[in-house]
Amino acid sequence: MELEVRHLRALCAIADTGSVHKAARLLGVSQPSLTTQLRRIEHALGAELFARERTGCRPTPLGHAVLSRARPLVAQMALLVTETRAAAARADGARLRVGSTASRALAGWLRRLRDRLPGTDITLHMDVSAGALLRALAAGQLDVAFVHEVEGCPLRVPDGLERRVLVEREPQFISMARDHPAAAAPVVDLADLAGDRWMVDPTVDGEWDGLRRVLGAAGIDPPVLHGDYHTAASLIVAGEVVAPCQPTSGPRDDMAIRPLRGDPLAVRLLLYSRPGTDTDAGHAEPAYADLVAAYREAALRTSAYRQWLLRHGSPLARAA
């Protein structure tokens, strides 16, 4: 077996994320296929490159040596691809490459961008990992990135990126079955959910650590399932779990979404760009203005969040 750039990229992804599961999500492949690929690489080299531990994967001494040679090669190949694509984009016409974590504001933002920039090729790249989007932005693979940062779990931001704050502190609500006893109240106490099973997606940067910190501070230790939020929705409706959710979520006939008393869970919403580029000079500020308008539209469309904004005297509510 001869090592190729894709093999080196896989090794770097495993080292960067500390997990084969997270690396597979980052690379857009299945975990079993990446595990098999890693075994083949190690077999070809004749030694283990990562120590498998309960908390993830850690490079062995040989792994560190291989990674020190692999990273420059991967970076150079990424730069070659980026520069080639940039040259093609300049030849073919204007384009804007948007990256984003999940948000109810996304559809309205894209609609506004297309209205503002007719003739521009606007593409969208979604990822659960804010860190992966920021790395792609720094590598020149994206022009702007809309991400969220879990409170108490700061993102690792590559050097050279410019940040614009959309919302300094967005509260995270709780989603539960419509017939959950706590759903009878307009605001829910964490203590009312101490006996429930919670669900969280650990591949979302900071999500599990942030929830664990908040639950610990409240003095409760409920069982927690790890899984994606698409799966969580069906389990929530069935009354099997409760889960954090964006305040712009809902409404749904089969699910109750309520704010938590004291708003212990929160995120910061941020837009990043690369200063000094043609895209940043021409599009970053208008893109931010369109994102603000789209987020306001999504926020005021949801009754529970609109009431929360009014109670807290948010500028978003005053703008309405």
Rank of each mutant, 00 (worst) to 15 (best):
T82D: 06
T60C: 07
S68M: 13
G119N: 04
H43F: 11
G56Y: 10
R58Y: 00
M77I: 10
A75Y: 07
S103C: 12
R85V: 06
L45E: 04
L45Q: 01
Q76V: 14
A70I: 03
P59C: 03
L67R: 08
R85S: 12
G63L: 01
L113A: 03
H64T: 14
G93H: 10
R52S: 13
H64N: 15
A78Y: 05
V74M: 07
L96P: 00
L67A: 12
A47F: 09
C57G: 07
L67S: 10
E42R: 04
R54V: 12
R114S: 06
A91W: 03
V98F: 01
G56H: 06
Q76M: 15
L117P: 01
T55R: 15
D115K: 09
A78H: 10
R116E: 13
A88V: 02
A94H: 08
E53V: 08
R85D: 09
A88D: 06
L73R: 13
H43N: 15
M77D: 12
G63D: 04
R69D: 14
T120Q: 03
A47C: 13
T55A: 14
P59M: 01
R95D: 14
V74R: 01
E48T: 08
L113G: 00
A51T: 13
L80N: 11
G63T: 07
D92W: 01
A86S: 15
R114M: 05
T55H: 15
